[in-house]
Write a protein that binds this DNA or RNA. Structure first.
Length: 298
DNA sequence: ATCGGGATTGCCT
DNA sequence: GGCAATCCCGATG
């Protein structure tokens, strides 16, 4: 029964993949006949590695200035031990350049470190290498995208260390929020209220949706890919420095003692953090400060 | 071929 | 804050 269902689904997916690329841009309607900004088919297509030309053209202004990735962080930055890199990501800006040249930007405010080898909570636990987690064993800076709960995606970046990678959990939207909102709302019920800015990227799968990070970005190089990269923060710095909270990773309770390792890092008090851990914040040391001008950038 | 778990999310109470 | 939705992946036989 279940097998049959799966087979039928596989056939449907194959048929969808074989369909012509020009699939009804902005012609799609839902049951109520209301025109959708982004159709389910288009959303699906963005997940399945097709271009993102369907994304609405943004209003052009100085805010959308098309900058070349001159501030792009290179190989050196990613070649750090996993936990160091996880903290180093905080405050850096993830940039997604869409097919029409639009750039979406978000400041990283929450990460998790997944070591290889003895870290039982890691996909690469015990040095186990599979088709899925291959990117974790590739050079530092390699993107690892995987599917979670069958329907969502998570984006990681491999670090120094065999099979080690950092999960990106939350971003603060900086540029292209209207498009992010459109991408996120495409899966929501009709008539649902608009998402606030801080709700656009406050979760690992939400950020993949909002920045249109598809599954096929798996194994790409964040240090050289033309469609996605990382920058130092050139935006206005906060008046007060953010303290880094170090807390147990979320969603891995079943992994015993490894679930307790404080390898989730986030900016204390930042509104875009997905899960706040008050106990960890009480123990947060003042020495752990995010400072983009410091040498912690490497 | 089949099974069980999962680095989550959105909606409802 | 609880819980259903939803299916891929890897392990097992």
């Amino acid at each position: 029964m279940a097998g049959r269902k799966r087979k039928l689904l596989a056939v449907a997916v194959a048929a969808a993949a074989a369909a012509p690329p020009e699939r009804e841009v902005n012609k799609h309607k839902n049951e109520t006949g209301v025109k959708l900004e982004v159709s389910p088919a288009q959303l699906k297509s963005s997940i399945q590695c097709e271009n993102s030309a369907h994304i609405a053209e943004p209003e052009r202004s100085h805010y959308f200035t098309q900058t070349e990735p001159q501030h792009r962080l290179g190989e050196d930055f990613f070649s750090q031990p996993c936990i160091t890199l996880a903290k180093g990501f905080l405050g850096k800006v993830l940039v997604r350049r869409c097919a029409d040249g639009t750039e979406l930007r978000g400041r990283i405010v929450e990460t998790e470190a997944y070591l290889g080898g003895e870290d039982r909570a890691s996909h690469s636990a015990g040095g186990k290498r599979t088709e899925r987690n291959t990117a974790m064993f590739m050079k530092p800076g390699t993107i690892y995208v995987y599917t979670i709960y069958g329907i969502y995606l998570c984006m990681n970046v491999s670090s120094e260390g065999e099979g080690a990678a950092v999960l990106l959990r939350s971003l603060e939207p900086l540029q292209g929020q209207p498009i992010m909102r459109q991408l996120r709302a495409a899966r929501h019920k009709e008539g649902t209220r608009q998402l606030k800015d801080k709700e656009l990227c406050n979760g690992p799968s939400k950020l993949c949706q909002a920045l249109n990070i598809p599954r096929c970005f798996d194994r790409r190089d964040l240090a050289s890919d033309p469609e996605v990269w990382l920058e130092r923060d050139s935006h206005t710095s906060p008046a007060e420095p953010y303290y880094i909270v170090s807390a147990p990773r979320v969603g891995i309770e079943s992994h015993g003692e490894w679930a307790k390792k404080p390898w989730r890092f986030y900016l204390r008090g930042h509104p875009c953090v997905s899960v706040v851990n008050k106990e960890a914040e009480r123990q947060c040391r003042s020495g752990n400060v995010m400072n983009n001008l410091s040498s912690s950038d490497v």
